[in-house]
Amino acid sequence: MGILEVKNVGKRFGGLQALSDVNLSVQENTVHAIIGPNGAGKSTLLNCFVGKLIPDTGSVMFNGQSVLGLKPHQINQMGISRVFQTPEIFGDLTVMENVMISCFAKRDGSFRLHPFETVAHEVDIVDKAEQMLIDVNMADKRHMQASSLSRGDKRRLEMAMCLSQDPKLLLLDEPTAGMARADTNNTIDLLKEIREKRDITMAIIEHDMHVVFSLADRITVLAQGTPLVEDVPEKIKGHPKVKEAYLGETGVTQAA
């Protein structure tokens, strides 16, 4: 039984069957990648995990509990953190404040009225956030305004915010989309580093097969809303069905 169990999930938008009969199981302490060409339904699937979309059919169970119909903040409180395609951070706040907000959310839950406490006096939160920034090599930037960070650092900060919550499952939505080669490599290195340092379960949505290849324990290939194959990376690479799905897109994939 995996930490995330997806059964017979289907989703239709008007005339488009975006997802049909998706079955998927993400095992604890593994990195599971979901790849597929454009329009395969990857993002739709991810949005079904985080409360943004509700599938028409099927079930999504996290740790034995259904997440369908729950709000994003409720799903996060269950232990799922999400990294967005373009980093979503609190641009007007400092790097430190960004991470502290995550720590507060983890400690205090989805709402707590605490108008007369002082942020600076919350020693455990301050310490935790500082340690997290050291872990991702951003301690020297703690007082910078988050919007002034480079794109790579924004991604790093977003990752730090998610990791500071010790998520049971970390979802990554095309973490390298639109990045230059160097940034892509940095991100891959960061993810590998995170993997080595802590026990973590990750599910990565990715267009570019090469990104996840060195990272994933298992890969599911999605095409036209249905899983094509699921296997270890080595077997996926040469799989005839995968080649077929990516055919005509191979060039794009290489270049990305």
Binding site: F90, H114, V119
Partner: peptide
């Protein structure tokens, strides 16, 4: 206060705050 910090976070990025469990 942490409450004030959350309010400022709402102004800058409500989506992120929702996905951060708030």
């Amino acid at each position: 206060s942490p409450f004030g910090l959350m309010l400022r976070a709402i102004k800058t990025n409500q989506t992120r705050l929702n996905y951060t469990g708030i």
